[in-house]
Design a protein around this nucleic acid. Structure first.
Length: 150
DNA sequence: CCATAGGTGCAAC
DNA sequence: GTTGCACCTATGG
């Protein structure tokens, strides 16, 4: 059974979904049309988000998430998840590690719908910030929170 | 299949 | 600065 939670972050509402205590989605949008809103089920996560958006070092890597069926994306996402708070790598570095190309990494990351928990914002381009499916303003803000200026 | 498009990178001018 | 191309995956005909 899927339940949803809405979190009001300083940079906009976040909708999170979980099924059997595994997070299946976390995105910057306000999906209030969803039924089954149970914010109390996300108490631990929301407290971490409070601290995170206050600028503290908060890790999310121990929270169970659902990886995609697509094996390539699952491989990329698991690799990205090793990145800790404030740690960044380039598309090229990830690609080399996985034996693929930087563009393929970008393609996979654009399909990430569990933001923050799968920290695709910590993957940047060789020459600059790179892209972000929800807009680079959000990416820049997240990196700023983690003490990174580009 | 073939064409085209990405959250890229690199070399060349 | 910019143009051009190789790179791998995704998507649509």
């Amino acid at each position: 059974m899927i339940v949803y939670g809405i979190y009001e972050s300083p940079i906009g509402p976040i909708t999170v979904a979980s099924e059997d205590n595994v997070i299946t989605m976390l995105d910057f949008c306000n999906c209030t049309e969803k039924n089954f809103i149970r914010n109390e089920e996300f108490k631990d996560l929301f407290e971490r988000l409070d601290s995170y958006f206050r600028g503290n070092r908060v890790e999310f890597y121990d929270i169970p998430v659902k990886y995609p069926m697509n094996p390539f994306r699952a491989r990329v996402f698991k690799e990205i998840r090793k990145l800790r708070w404030g740690e960044i790598k380039t598309y090229g570095m990830i690609a080399e590690r996985l034996g693929t190309s930087p563009r393929a990494i970008g393609m996979a990351l654009s399909k990430n719908d569990i933001l923050l928990l799968i920290p695709c914002h910590r993957v940047v381009a060789e020459n600059g910030i790179g892209g972000y499916s929800r807009g680079i303003l959000i990416k820049r803000k997240l990196l700023e929170l983690e003490g990174i200026k580009l």
